[in-house]
C-alpha cells in the first residue's frame, strides 16, 4: 500500500541480486513496508519467544515480488504484501500452506477476516490491515462533497490542476473502471481500453501522480482533491481537520494487506509464531492507533479509543461495510494488459 519514491530504485535493483544470498542461520527475516509495524515489535517478539528477528524493508509490492521471484523466496520467513500479490505468490507455488493450529490468535479476528475472497480460511495468507481507496479532499476548498470518481476524471474547472491520482497500476485503473461502472478486477480488453482512454484524458486536470505524499499536498493547499487510501488520508486529517474522506457513490475497492510465509522459508515454525504474535490484540491496537489503518483484529478494534474514530471517521467503518466493496483480486494473465495500459497512460501526453 505504501510506496517509496524514485531514489530507492538503484538500491532495489542491487538488492534483488543480494537478496538470494541473505539467508540467516538462526534468526527469521521479516520484510515489510517502512513504518508499517510497531518499531519495537521485533524486540518484544524476541523477548517473548527467544527467537531473533531481523527486518528487511520493501518500498512496493512490486519490489518484494521481484525479490521473492528472483530468490525463490529463500532468505525470507514472513513477508507483508497486498492480497493480489499474496494470491500470485500462492499460484506460483512460492507461498507456504499455513498451519491454523499454530495461529491461535486468529481467534481475535472478525469472522469476515476468515472468509476473504482471495483466500477463504486463510490457508496461505493472514490479513494484517484492510481498508478502502477513495477521495480525500479539503472541504474548505471543494464545493460540496465530491461523491463520484468523475471528479478525478472530468473535474470541474475550479479543481483542474489541483488533483492527484495514485500511479500504482491497480488503483489508477480502478478509478477508470469504477467511473465507468466496471469491476475493479476487469478483464475485458475493450473495457481496459476505455479506462485507459479516460485516464489519459484525465491527465490534463492533474497536478501530479502521487502515491506517497498526496496528503501533505492537501495540507499545504497545493492540491484540493486526491485519490487516497483511507489510512493515509487520516495523516492529512490529523494535520488539518478540514480534510475529509469520501467513498464515491460508484463504490470502490476493498484492499487487504496480508502476511505470507514463503514456501522456501527455512524457519516455518518461528515464522508462524511471529504471525501469531502480530495477531495479538495489543499489537493490532498499536497498528490501528499509530498507523491509523483498520485492522481485521476485532479484539484490537474494540479496544480502540473512541475519540480516534471521532477524529478519523473512516477508522470506524465496520467489516460489514468494508465487505460491501469489491475486493481487489489477482487477475492473472490480464495483469500484462494492466501493466501495458498503465505504461501507455504514463507515457501519453
Amino acid at each position: 500500500m505504501k510506496r517509496l519514491g524514485g531514489a530507492t530504485a538503484v538500491l532495489m535493483l542491487t538488492g534483488t541480486l543480494i537478496a538470494g544470498s541473505a539467508v540467516a542461520a538462526e534468526k527469521i527475516v521479516i520484510s515489510n513496508w517502512d513504518g508499517y509495524m510497531p518499531a519495537d515489535l521485533l524486540e518484544r517478539f524476541t523477548a517473548a519467544t527467544g527467537i531473533e528477528a531481523e527486518l528487511a524493508l520493501h518500498g512496493t509490492n512490486e519490489e518484494i515480488m521481484g525479490k521473492v521471484m528472483a530468490s525463490g523466496g529463500k532468505g525470507y520467513d514472513v513477508i507483508f504484501v497486498s492480497s493480489p500479490f499474496a494470491e500470485a505468490l500462492n499460484k506460483l507455488g512460492l507461498a507456504a500452506t499455513l498451519d491454523p493450529a499454530a495461529l491461535p490468535n486468529m481467534a481475535n479476528f472478525y469472522p469476515e477476516a476468515m472468509e476473504l475472497k482471495h483466500d477463504p480460511g486463510n490457508t496461505f495468507s493472514v490479513p494484517y490491515a484492510w481498508g478502502t481507496t477513495g477521495l480525500c479532499y479539503r472541504s474548505d476548498l471543494v464545493d460540496g462533497e465530491p461523491d463520484s470518481w468523475s471528479y478525478l476524471l472530468t473535474p470541474p474547472e475550479a479543481l483542474s490542476g489541483k488533483i492527484t491520482m495514485l500511479s500504482t497500476d491497480r488503483w489508477l485503473l480502478a478509478a477508470g473502471f469504477l467511473a465507468n461502472g466496471y469491476s475493479v478486477n476487469e478483464t475485458d480488453p475493450a473495457k481496459i481500453e476505455q479506462a485507459k482512454i479516460d485516464l489519459i484524458a484525465a491527465k490534463r486536470g492533474l497536478l501530479a501522480y502521487d502515491d506517497t505524499t498526496f496528503y501533505s499536498k492537501l495540507v499545504s493547499g497545493e492540491a484540493s482533491l486526491v485519490q487516497a487510501w483511507d489510512g493515509w488520508c487520516n495523516y492529512g486529517i490529523g494535520e488539518n481537520s478540514d480534510i475529509k474522506y469520501v467513498i464515491p457513490k460508484e463504490g470502490t475497492d476493498l484492499w487487504v494487506d496480508a502476511m505470507v510465509i514463503p514456501a522456501a522459508s527455512a524457519h516455518k515454525a518461528p515464522a508462524h509464531q511471529f504471525i501469531n504474535f502480530v495477531l495479538d490484540a495489543e499489537n493490532g491496537l498499536w497498528v490501528a492507533e499509530n498507523i491509523l489503518y483498520k485492522v481485521p483484529n476485532k479484539a484490537a478494534m474494540e479496544a480502540l479509543d473512541p475519540s480516534l474514530i471521532e477524529t478519523y471517521p473512516n477508522l470506524g467503518m465496520s467489516p460489514a461495510d468494508l465487505l460491501k466493496e469489491e475486493q481487489l483480486l489477482d487477475v492473472g494473465e490480464t495483469q500484462r494488459a494492466y501493466a501495458r495500459a498503465v505504461s501507455e497512460i504514463m507515457a501519453a501526453k
Partner: peptide
C-alpha cells in the same frame, strides 16, 4: 529514465 524505472519496478516488465 522514468520509463525504464517504471518497467522494472512498477510494471514488472
Amino acid at each position: 529514465g522514468t520509463l525504464v524505472y517504471d518497467q522494472f519496478l512498477s510494471a514488472r516488465d
